[in-house]
Design a protein around this nucleic acid. Structure first.
Lengths: 179, 179
DNA sequence: CAGCTCATGTAACCCGTTACATGATTTA
DNA sequence: TAAATCATGTAACGGGTTACATGAGCTG
């Protein structure tokens, strides 16, 4: 066993909320989940087959129009057991973030290096854009307090992503002003 | 070309500071660099050979005691060119962080779920421990302002790691108190 | 009807971890 | 002298990305 296959638990988690097709699962990673985990369709489709073999999920066939075949997946009882077990087990935190920008800074020994200004400016711009994007999504989804309870998990991760980006931008700006 | 091989640039960056053995490079990842990138010796040794083939680095043999053979690697001019190119090129930020704890929260729909208390407590403990560790390292290394300039890059990444953890802990505690 | 999106798959390849393997040196 | 650390490698495997491949449905 080389790694951990967290992806399968995420798929179980998504399917525990509602049944979805492989395509719809892929979209989830392109959107909200993408903040904290990434996956492409080429990884998802084979895994769905494997998980069905293991009876963690099952599918029914659907047809759109006259021909377009879809597989709508649902979680099985067995799958839900596995999911709950994963949630309950201790989460060993390893700071597994890979930040290429910070690494580049690390290799610039000189505080007066000419490249620093443009590098910081670029990152500040990118992170501010992203922060703005997150904030509008938050506005759209959770403008009413009632909805914070209805989709508590979703609210939490968006909230955390915003908090994290806000802090990152602030750090960038502080360092930039101290150059 | 499937991925990007950032690791090779990090090795170049480390070797641009001083010549090192494979073992010493491995130690770097276990310590400061480890905050932002991870690598094991089993990945480093083969890559060093590959990079030497490409003439990005070169080595001289060293012997400790009477027998113990080491290879001390240095960066070549070609290697430094490649390194500077990497630093200069735009850093496309993708929030490639993978946070398993946040994902678990996402799948807990109910704000009153019994598991939340212990989950938050565990994470708060782990992150506080880590924060404390980072702070002592910072104390040890940069207690004098002069040293902040001498090792600017190193100071920056430690500083950022601390800032990030501090914010994470704060977020955890705020959410915990709102449960 | 052209272009975009929906929908599902496979193949090749690289990245990274775990485990296997060996031997020298230092330290308690 | 035993245990921990220094030092370098290889093998097997799973995780993840890029590219290849195909076809249906929808929208302007």
């Amino acid at each position: 066993m080389a790694q951990k296959n967290t992806l399968q638990f995420i798929i179980l988690g998504l399917l525990s909320q509602e049944s979805m097709t492989g395509y719809e699962l892929t979209q989830s990673f392109a959107h909200e989940i993408g903040e904290f985990w990434q996956a492409k369709h080429s990884q998802i489709y084979p895994l769905l087959n494997k998980m069905e073999d293991q009876q963690l999920i099952s599918h029914v066939d659907e047809v759109t129009g006259t021909k377009l075949a879809k597989k709508r997946y649902s979680i099985t009882q067995q799958g839900d057991d596995v999911l709950q077990e994963w949630i309950a087990e201790p989460t060993d935190f390893i700071s597994s973030s890979k930040d290429e920008f910070i690494l580049k800074l690390y290799f610039i020994k000189d505080k007066n290096d000419k490249r620093l200004t443009s590098m910081f400016n670029e990152q500040i711009r990118l992170h501010k854009e992203w922060l703005q994007h997150l904030k509008s999504r938050n506005e759209d989804l959770f403008n009413k307090r009632s909805q914070q309870n209805a989709q508590f998990g979703h609210y939490l991760i968006l909230n955390h992503a915003i908090d994290r980006e806000q802090n990152y931008v602030q750090w960038l700006e502080t360092q930039f002003n101290n150059l």
